[in-house]
Structures are given as structure tokens and as C-alpha cells.
Write a protein that binds this DNA or RNA. Sequence first.
DNA 1: TATATAAAAATGAATGTTCATTCTTTTTTT
DNA 2: AAAAAAAGAATGAACATTCATTTTTATATA
Lengths: 195, 195
Amino acid sequence: MAKLQKSIDKRNALIKATIELVNNNGFHATPMSKIAKMAKVSPATIYLYFENKQDLVNKTYIEVKAEYTDYVFANYKESMSVKTGFETIWKRIAEFKLNEYEHAMFLAQCDNTPMIDEPSLKEGIKHLQPLLDLWERGKQEGIIKPVSNYLLYAYAVSPLSFLMIAQKRGAFQLDKEQIEEAYQSAWSSIKKCEQ
Amino acid sequence: MAKLQKSIDKRNALIKATIELVNNNGFHATPMSKIAKMAKVSPATIYLYFENKQDLVNKTYIEVKAEYTDYVFANYKESMSVKTGFETIWKRIAEFKLNEYEHAMFLAQCDNTPMIDEPSLKEGIKHLQPLLDLWERGKQEGIIKPVSNYLLYAYAVSPLSFLMIAQKRGAFQLDKEQIEEAYQSAWSSIKKCEQ
DNA sequence: TATATAAAAATGAATGTTCATTCTTTTTTT
DNA sequence: AAAAAAAGAATGAACATTCATTTTTATATA
């Protein structure tokens, strides 16, 4: 147990260092030696926990993605109405992107570059299923526009990624009121017009 | 003249190769030797046209960004109404992202990673000014929501980037009708409610 | 116009560095 | 005292950049 405990601490430190360094420098400009140094570990030790550099970054991606979706669906219950369910999920997504932006930026970089291998990307996408299921239900109930989930996601969720990056760059600051307004925009863009 | 002509061809070939290779492998996983080979040039020749690798990618970014904004504003005139002006610009943005996606993907990667240096990023942003000016005019005329340009951009333009990536991954295909619908969504999200 | 020569452009090979990964030894745990 | 974990140093490959030559182009002269 002591052994396992210790190992998990080191593993976590490695994942944390990877996120921070990759965020600031990108995958290929982050040497294993720096990751090791930041995690206070010898470079050789990394290879006791991960097969190689690609494996390290794949596993980091999957962990952060899982953390993201756990966070996002934490308050959501399938028994909720489509409208309430969407609001619940959307607001958690916003919170995550704006408060946990170290992790959110890491995901954005993974999703916009050829850094993560295809199987790991697929693995990461799975976790978003409850939102897609909610939308399908909404379409059946005639509450949500009958269009591709990609379009719904583009309108309702992807603007948050842009705002996150803008905020991270210090260009401007989102407040409560703006988030509420952004939410209204998101809902308007996916609900059927009559609602 | 013949000399200059030849040089420009080589320079263009280098820029083209850079875009293609960086798109597929990322900046740091693209060796100068491969860029040279794809451009049918010796590695040493690159250094006659660019200071170093960073300079090559910075200049590539600025050129692609300029091409993008030229394309985007090609049909736009300041004399247009806010509504027409926005539609004109938006549809060109959509066209560019969906038709020229090699270049659009390159820009997305540059904007989501620490690949380009700060001065070059700033240089690239400048070109978008006419759209921001149009929005300011719209706010004064009471046609556009009186919110930060970042929010307007997030709602109205950033979804297109997401759709572009989804389309590139072959996940789905945008048709004329969906683009029209996406445009309506974009306009709804930034116009003042009464309009 | 044809030839010689200087300047510019281009090249392939060489250089030195950085880095992922492995090896051997030491330390810690059981 | 055996096994597991960790360490630092060593290895070898990949790469950006430079160097020494060669090739091409432009210019001047006859």
C-alpha cells in the first residue's frame, strides 16, 4: 500500500508536469528531462510509469478528458428535462473552461494538433455521450433543432473554447452576467424556434 | 527579373511545404530536411530565404493570415449596411474555412499552440480590423448587441472553426442548406433582439 | 554575337547539440 | 537478504544550422 501510494504520487506529479510544460511549450518542445525535473524524479523513472513519451502524453490526455467530463456531468441527471439538463451541463462546461483553464487549454491543444494518436482521441470522445443522448431526446421531443449533433456542438459549446483562449491571453474577462448571456445565446441557437 | 522570378517560386514552394507538413505532423515534428525535400531544394537553401525555422513558420503564418483576410473582405465595402456587410464577410469566412481548409487548419493550429511568437501573432490579428469596425458601427446604430467584440466573435465566427475541423476529420459534411442555417444562427446571436 | 569573369544562388556534407531511451549501480522496501 | 524502485550517466539517433564547393546567372569585353 505504501508502495502503491508513493507510485501514485509520482505518477500524478508526472502528469501535472506534462500538462504544464506542454501548455507552455508544446509537445515536441517539452523534453522528458524537463518533465522529470519538474516532477522531481529521474528521467529514467518516467519509464517505470509510462512506456515512452507518446504513451505519457496519450495517458495524460485521457485522464484530463475524463476529469473534464466527470466535472461536466457531475450535477446532471437523466431524469432532468431537456432544457434543465442542457443548462446544467452547459454551465459546468463554462465553469470548467474558465476556472480550470490549465486543463482546458491542454485539451484544446490536443484537439487542434496531431499530438495525440487516433485511438486515444477516440477513447476521449466517448465520455461526451450523455450530452449527445440528451440532444437526441430533445430532438424527439421537438424541443431541439433536428440537425446534426456537430452543428449543435458548434453553436452551443465551441464558442466557450474561443472565450477561454481569449481570457487566458488576458484579452478580456468574462463575468457572471456575460456567462448568463452566453448561455442564453447557446440555448437560443439550438432550441426549436417556437420554444 | 528571371532571378527574382525563380526565387519567388522557391520561396512559395517552401511555404507550401511548411503548411502541409506542419498540418500533418506539427511544427516540432517537421524537420527542415523534410521541408527542403518536399520543396525540392537543399536544406541549406532554406537559409537563403529565411533566418531559421522559427522565422520560416512565423512568415508562413503571416502570409496565410493575410491571404485569409484578403479572401474574407474581398466582396465587402464599407458603404454596405451593417447587416449586409456582416453577411458578406461571414459567408466568405465560411467559404474559406470549408474550401481552403489546408490553410484554415494551419491557422487553427497556429492559434491554438505556442508555435508562433507573440509579435507575429499580433501582426496577424491586425488584418481583422474591418470586421471589428463594422461591429462598432452596428452597436452605434443599435443593430448589434452592445457586448465585447470577443463575445461577438465567439458566437458568430468561432463555431465555423469547429465545423471545419469536424468536416476535415470526415465526421460529417456541411451542405449549402446547413451553411445558410449556420449563418442565420450567427446573425441571431449577435443582432439586437428586436431586429 | 561570343567569350571571359565576377557575383549570386544553390548544394551536399560536416558539425555540434539536444534529446529519448537504456544500462548499470545504488537506495529503498519487504 | 532478496526484490523492487529509483537514480545518474551513457548511448545513439535526429536535427538545425553552417561550411566549403559547385553551379548558375549577369555583366563586361572583344
